[in-house]
């Protein structure tokens, strides 16, 4: 019975109309028209109104999550279509039903950032090529790479998702030219360049540690000793050999206290009693700061958060 209920479609609500129903289509069309009107309306809004508009939207968006947190979450209905017990219960159900849609909006808005990035990239580099500015050749390489990646990426996705019911393309030995090109561009070039760029950090870390890690004070000595112990503990082979040595010493002397001198034990003590409390303290500070900043942005007190 429980499994059957799990398969049942969720009960219709303001946020969830029956699939393929006329009212759903009306709501979809109405939302598109409203969205477009809002979009173009905002474009033509006078400059002095832009800040209050942004502030209002920010406040309403934040208000939803504040109310969601404040209004008690209702228990799941025991039977489908069970009515709320009181207005608070009704409000709780409404917020609970609205959350997936609000979260969808947040997902879509975040995804729009990607589109905005592409638009910005195209604008800048096409202008650079047109005006033949310095290094405009690199802009051509960037745009060609982008078009190739998009073209082969989408072709590969369509083939794998819609034209391969038997899942043959899950095996790279069955790949066509399109699949191979997509893999070469994404995994063979882009991802490898990504890894190569990141690996350059090792050179800078070595150089920086060599130049800056000097024992000039008590604090820097403590810091260096801790770093040395933690680095040794990361070297599994060293930690293991050290541990074996301590084990032999414990057997030889019968003094079990020596077990505490294993590099893994000392490193764990440092992590547990020094590192973790320090991180926790920092996290508390960051949390309080984020809360204060969140309230300021929500209430429109922070100019940076709501500048139009």
């Amino acid at each position: 019975m429980i499994e059957l209920l799990a398969q049942a479609p969720p009960p219709p609500s303001f946020w969830n109309r029956p699939p393929y129903s006329p009212e759903l289509y009306v709501m979809v069309i109405g939302t598109i028209i409203l969205g477009l009107a809002l979009f173009f309306g905002l474009t033509y809004a006078p400059t002095r109104l832009k800040r209050p508009i942004v502030m209002t939207f920010t406040f309403l968006s934040g208000l939803f999550y504040v109310l969601l947190w404040l209004v008690p979450t209702p228990l799941k209905p025991k039977e489908p279509g069970e009515l709320p017990l009181n207005p608070v219960d009704a409000a709780g159900i409404w917020f609970s039903d609205a959350l997936p849609r609000v979260a969808d909006v947040a997902q879509i808005l975040s995804a729009f950032l990607l589109g905005l990035g592409i638009f910005s990239l195209l604008t800048i580099h096409i202008r650079k090529i047109n005006r033949k500015q310095t290094d405009w050749g690199f802009s051509i390489v960037l745009l060609v790479s982008m078009v190739l990646m998009l073209g082969f990426g989408y072709a590969d996705w369509i083939m794998k998702e819609f034209r391969d019911p038997l899942g043959l393309l899950q095996d790279s030995s069955n790949w066509t030219f399109v699949n191979q090109m997509s893999d070469l561009l994404f995994d063979g070039i882009l991802q490898q360049m990504d890894a190569a760029m990141f690996s350059l950090i090792a050179f800078y870390i070595l150089s920086a540690a060599y130049r800056a890690f000097r024992v000039r004070s008590v604090e820097s000595t403590v810091l260096m000793a801790s770093a040395l112990i933690l680095m040794l503990s990361l070297m599994g082979g060293v930690a293991y050999a050290w541990g074996q040595g301590i084990d032999a010493l414990v057997i030889g002397t019968g003094n079990e206290f020596l077990n505490n001198l294993k590099i893994t034990e000392v490193a764990n003590w440092l992590r547990t009693n020094m590192q973790a409390p320090a991180i926790r303290a920092i996290e508390f500070g960051v949390g309080l700061g984020a809360l204060a900043m969140g309230i300021r942005i929500w209430l429109g007190l922070e100019r940076g958060g709501v500048s139009a």
Partner: peptide, 29 residues
Amino acid sequence: FPNAEGAGQNMRNDIRKAWGTRQTKVDGQ
């Protein structure tokens, strides 16, 4: 899910609604 905070909150609230619109290919179909 481009928005990690929204996705997490949604999963917590009701996973059936959070992932309900997602579809998948089924091997062999």
